[in-house]
Design a protein around this nucleic acid. Sequence first.
DNA 1: AAGATCCACAATTTCGATATTTTTAAGTTA
DNA 2: TAACTTAAAAATATCGAAATTGTGGATCTT
Lengths: 228, 228
Amino acid sequence: MFNPVETPPVKPTGETGSATQQAYAALRRMIVIGELSPGEKLKIDTLRKTLDTGASPVREALSLLVSDQLVERLDQRGFRTASASRGNFEEILMLRCHLEEMALRRSITSGNQNWEESLVLAHHRMGRQNRDDVEAFEERHKAFHMALLSACDSPILLKFCNQLYDLNVRYRYLAGRASGYQKRDVSNEHADILAATVERNANLAVERLISHYRQTGDFLTAQFDTPE
Amino acid sequence: MFNPVETPPVKPTGETGSATQQAYAALRRMIVIGELSPGEKLKIDTLRKTLDTGASPVREALSLLVSDQLVERLDQRGFRTASASRGNFEEILMLRCHLEEMALRRSITSGNQNWEESLVLAHHRMGRQNRDDVEAFEERHKAFHMALLSACDSPILLKFCNQLYDLNVRYRYLAGRASGYQKRDVSNEHADILAATVERNANLAVERLISHYRQTGDFLTAQFDTPE
DNA sequence: AAGATCCACAATTTCGATATTTTTAAGTTA
DNA sequence: TAACTTAAAAATATCGAAATTGTGGATCTT
């Protein structure tokens, strides 16, 4: 009998997943890219209309976002986006340096050849992505950084890193790409991190990774002092 | 005029907060103490009846618990409690050692006298608590350990530690207090940790804290090999 | 006028019911 | 007998409306 090419789990409609997950993805994106400002009140009814869905999915999506620390819940006064502050940013940076160091070291220790190749691939894809499409580039940038840590063999650690990464990206968007952001040549930094990692030189790789974060971090911190 | 003793914000009824938060607290407790087994299916309707509340609060509470990693969400197939495994336990133990070390060092560096006193108090309260009331003791035990970290000046780190702590407590309950648990004299260990901390001897305090975790950890790990 | 109290409005939260989806089980065919 | 299909049952996910709770403005008191 002809195998009908195996019907893929393509949803009848082109949409993705449940209403809750759609709302979650949409809200998450809006918060990370700054379409929703820090500390902004999130009225259920407004969001319901914006996302064209019911109140339940919105409410559930917001609950999920609370755990990501992108949304704060106020007792019985609804939700608001997480506030942004210099202190919060520095905290995120500090934790990222610690946790990603841990994850990277473990990855380098236990990563196999398959992991190694996935790194090269992720790096290549990032390089090929036109940087004018900011969101697309950010996606590949994240993919590269997460690939570095992906072999750490600790789902929880990976989850923490992922969370912190997103919180950090938000600050990048908030700072705006203005003011000559990205004047530095980050491409070289990425290449150097990749090289040290592939060579399994943990100390060097960690040093480069952290230096990479600290430099962009210092830049963003400076933005807090010069509001405009 | 007589000041009417200042009406405290005591809720008219003795209950606490919204239905969602009540459900959240109740479910959390049930999972941590093992009243709900690892991997158990969590049927909304059943929980709705058990907690005597609506489906919305239950659903929202479960969403909150997903972030705590105490509950897993299955695409469109509802919720279940997080599964337990030796690997997962060892991961939690490992992360706890790393993160609590970081937090404790920071606490010792920046903690003030007020913090110091809160430690002594928490330790005292733990000692006074009858250990036959397991839940009450666990609460004070947690309070003591969290007090140690509370001056780390990093809310996110604290949140991570809190989360990991609860995940770990769950394994303690799962292992059951059977099999001669707590034969070791943990009271001395606590006292030693407190002493080193108050003396601001970070290296010693961290060493004792981690040793404390590793010992109970090794015990629990052994439980996995001897199911009964 | 300053402060407190009350009332009407708005928003959140919760409930009951409906619509999908998944799971189970039976029935049919090779 | 095993696998595939089909139908019924159960559970989840979602919606729309009611009930609870917070908010801001106007009124009254000091």
